[in-house]
């Protein structure tokens, strides 16, 4: 039930964002000072902002960018983490030490700081932010991959493959990767909402995109002064973000329950 609600929320935002760009038919930057703060209607579905720009069109464009950046960051974290982690698992001790410390560094540095550094070097764009957030995710993924891969090495089937003369790449591809991939992707999926939130936070800081291009976070920053008089301007981007991130949490969160009996609870306990 919870997953269904989550799926519905995420799908709604995704469809509205991708479809919205196509059907809204408004220029994102078309300033129309005659129709500032117009209410919702047939012409502007969610009304217009303080410059007469169509809110729905901006919201949809922001959603598309947020989703693309999130997907890219997650893909970079997965690919980079797998590469670095497997390299560490197969490499000789010195190279392993270097790879693991690099992963440690990426894992302990705040995501926002890594993203800011990458944005400073590559310039403001959703892609540089996605790259930064992806690199930040690479660290913890690589540490996890390395742990799972070294555990897989101890399995008899890997030993058997080694004895049969399979090379390191064959072992990595056919025997280690299938053991590593499911927990790693599950873990990463649990962090996807987190990535979207970080992207929105960076956009709020003004580091998400080239100025003027709409992002949910930058819309919240731009419209924050209108909280008094036109709360709808803040409400819509906030609602989009809440729906999307909350939906992802509901959709992906694993429902693990403690099965052991505790002496304290007098009813069944489930972890949150």
């Amino acid at each position: 039930m919870r997953r269904l609600i989550g799926l519905f929320a995420v799908a709604a935002v995704a469809v509205l964002s991708t479809g919205g760009v196509l059907i809204a038919g408004h220029d994102l930057h078309a300033v129309d000072l005659a129709h500032r703060h117009a209410g919702p209607g047939a012409e502007h579905w969610l009304g217009t902002d303080h410059l007469g720009r169509d809110i729905f069109a901006r919201l949809a464009a922001g959603g598309g960018r947020a989703m693309a950046a999130t997907g890219l960051a997650a893909a970079i974290a997965l690919a980079g983490g797998l590469a670095l982690g497997l390299f560490a698992a197969f490499a000789p001790p010195a190279a392993r030490f270097l790879a693991l410390r690099t992963a440690d560094l990426a894992a302990i540095m705040p995501e926002l700081v890594i993203a800011i550094l990458v944005a400073a070097a590559l310039g403001f764009s959703p892609w540089s932010i996605a790259l930064g957030l992806g690199i930040a995710g690479t660290g913890s993924t690589a540490i996890m991959v390395h742990g799972l891969a070294t555990a897989a090495f101890r399995e008899p089937y890997v030993k058997a493959a080694e004895a049969l003369g399979t090379g390191p790449f064959g072992i990595a591809w056919r025997h280690v990767l299938p053991a590593v991939l499911p927990p790693v992707t599950t873990n990463l999926a649990g962090h996807v909402g987190h990535i979207t939130m970080n992207y929105a936070a960076l956009a709020f800081l003004g580091l998400g995109a080239d100025s003027g291009a709409p992002d949910w976070g930058s819309m919240l920053f731009e419209y924050r002064f209108f909280l008094f008089d036109h709360p709808a301007l803040v409400l819509w981007p906030a609602l989009a973000l809440l729906l999307f991130v909350g939906g992802l949490h509901c959709l992906i969160e694993p429902d693990s329950g403690s099965t052991r009996r505790s002496v304290l609870p007098f009813r069944k306990v489930s972890s949150p």
């Binding site: 929105a200 936070a201 906030a238 949490h249 505790s262 304290l264 949150p272």
Partner: peptide, 29 residues
């Protein structure tokens, strides 16, 4: 923890879900 599923447990759980989904910058504004 003193009373799982009690009032304190439910409230703190709600609180943690809210903090996870509501972006800090929005709450700050």
């Amino acid at each position: 923890a003193r009373r799982p599923h009690g009032i304190a447990d439910r409230l703190t759980r709600l609180f943690s879900i809210a903090a996870q989904t509501a972006p800090s910058f929005l709450v700050a504004i």
